[in-house]
Simulated assay, not measured.
Amino acid sequence: MRRPESLDKYTVEVSPAAWRQLSHLPLETYQRIREELDATAARLRPATPVPLPQKLVRTVETRSILVDGHVALFEVDPDRRRLTLREIARRIP
C-alpha cells in the first residue's frame, strides 16, 4: 500500500519487453532515459483527488521522449498514477 504522502506522485515502471531493449543500450543512455522518465513523472500532478476505481474505463495516454538517438515510448495512466516504459527504438535519421 502506498504511503499517504506518495498518493499524488506517479511511479515509473518498465515493461518486460522494454527491460530487454534497455539491456542492449550503453549504461549512459539507460541512465539518461531513466532520468527523463523520473523527471516526467515528477512533473505529473493530478488535478483532482484520487478517483474511485471505474469498472471498465481507463484513460491511458501514450507519449514519447527522444534520448541519445533513441525513442522511448511510455504510457501515462492517471487512474493508477503510473508511467510505464513500453518500448525503446533507435531513431532513424
Rank of each mutant, 00 (worst) to 15 (best):
Q54Y: 00
E87Y: 07
A18W: 05
S23F: 03
R81L: 11
L25H: 08
T29K: 01
P46T: 12
V60A: 09
R86I: 12
D68E: 07
P4A: 05
L56V: 09
R3M: 05
I88Y: 03
P49V: 12
T62I: 09
L85S: 02
I88S: 03
V50L: 14
R43V: 04
H70W: 04
T29P: 01
V71D: 10
R3Q: 08
V76S: 01
L25A: 11
V71S: 13
H70K: 04
E36T: 10
V57H: 08
P93W: 07
R86G: 04
A17M: 10
R91E: 13
E87M: 12
V12T: 02
V67Q: 00
E35P: 00
R91T: 05
L22C: 10
R90W: 08
P16N: 06
D38I: 08
Q54P: 03
E61N: 01
R58K: 14
P16G: 07
V14K: 06
W19S: 13
R91Y: 09
P78I: 01
Q54T: 05
K9R: 14
D38R: 12
T84G: 02
S64M: 14
D68Y: 00
I65N: 09
L44F: 04
A18N: 07
K55C: 06
L44S: 04
L83A: 13
P93A: 15
R90Y: 10
S64T: 15
Y10D: 04
T11L: 15
I33F: 11
R2T: 06
F74I: 03
R63C: 13
R90F: 08
R90C: 04
G69M: 06
R63M: 12
D8P: 01
W19Q: 14
I88V: 13
I65R: 14
R32F: 00
R32A: 04
